[in-house]
Design a protein around this nucleic acid. Structure first.
Lengths: 204, 204
DNA sequence: GTCTATAACAGGATAGAC
DNA sequence: GTCTATCCTGTTATAGAC
């Protein structure tokens, strides 16, 4: 369902993902999307009904995948490294950065960052209602790793970690990939550095 | 020049700031802007020439102010608390959060977050060419506070701090202001928690 | 400097043939 | 399922009266 370039629906989704990451939702016209996907302009409304629906579909396709990967890795961390902060952080941080390793996935993580920036109430509600349990699972497990940290402190810091991750994922910062590191290695560097940084910040 | 609601130009700038923060650049029409500012639709082109120019003006007005405040506070930190990490971080973190304390300033810090999310090459170049020296000043002083930390580690971590700050400023996270704290106190809480978190992360 | 009016066009959406 | 043709609305920008 994901990789095939042969049916109209996926072609539209991939083109939309790329263009939304580049120019935002409002900044991307359906004509651009169908142009890049090389399908007819009317196909969007046939397959998705409306632009807003297309946005949601683009979003959901990857977000479901990412959330599942995070929860699976969290479960493994809980079993194999109980109480170990770094393992929990890795489960939170590594899946999105792994997703960013191919071009199409990288487009999505940018969209994710954009979704936060857009104050779009619809998307926010969608995220917190559909994926809120993921964040709750993590904050529970983190509380377990840091029994002495007051809850409100923990929430603040989890927010900071999410911010640093979002920023790093979307490649906002000034850090440029050095020539001797591949794209993949660079993202692994990012994960390693961020886990270390976040662990220290959380333990503060 | 800032507070007066009496001339067309500032009315337009304030309305644009509010609406851009709410709906993004592409998502805001000049008709909405002039509607909110209660001026004629033609006034935008008379005073700013084009929509793109208006975006830049909205941006520059506050960014100059913020950068100046950061550098002034950095200078004070260097003089009064030499080598103290927390003081340097406060100079980086407090000015934007202080700016967010009135409604108009809060709109701007959201725009700032949006400017990162928009991959808009023009804005990115504008930021790094016009305000790059600010970040360089901070990274220099931070290197001074953390003489044992390798430079490339420092850059990674500074990026993470910037991400956490951006996220916190734009109020993306899940942290909601408790009823017993005023808006101002809440932002001061944010600054305090973030400085503590960032200091620990940088020292990791 | 501020208005009205309008040019010139791009946007999302849909009807209906194939 | 996919096409063409078209509707309708909203967009930036500007010309020209006041």
């Amino acid at each position: 369902m994901t990789g095939t370039q042969f049916n109209t629906k996926d072609r539209i989704l991939n083109a939309a993902e790329t263009l939304f990451a580049l120019n935002g939702f409002a900044g991307t016209s359906l004509r651009e999307v169908t142009g890049m996907a090389d399908v007819n302009i009317a196909a969007v409304n046939y397959h998705f009904g409306s632009k807003e629906n297309l946005v949601n579909e683009v979003f959901r396709r990857r977000m479901d995948e990412m959330s599942a990967a995070r929860l699976a890795q969290l479960e493994r961390a809980r079993r194999e490294h109980p109480g170990e902060l770094e393992a929990v952080l890795a489960a939170f941080i590594e899946p999105p950065l792994a997703m960013a390793q191919d071009r199409q996935g990288a487009a999505f993580v940018r969209i994710l960052a954009r979704a936060y920036a857009e104050q779009n109430a619809g998307l926010r509600d969608f995220i917190s209602s559909r994926y809120g349990h993921v964040l709750r699972g993590f904050s529970q497990e983190l509380a377990h790793c840091l029994p002495k940290l007051p809850k409100d402190e923990l929430y603040w810091r989890l927010d900071f970690v999410a911010g640093a991750l979002t920023y790093a994922m979307a490649d906002f910062g000034l850090i440029r990939r050095p020539n001797h590191r591949s794209e993949k290695e660079h993202l692994q560097d990012a994960a390693r550095h961020l886990i270390e940084f976040a662990a220290a910040g959380l333990r503060a």
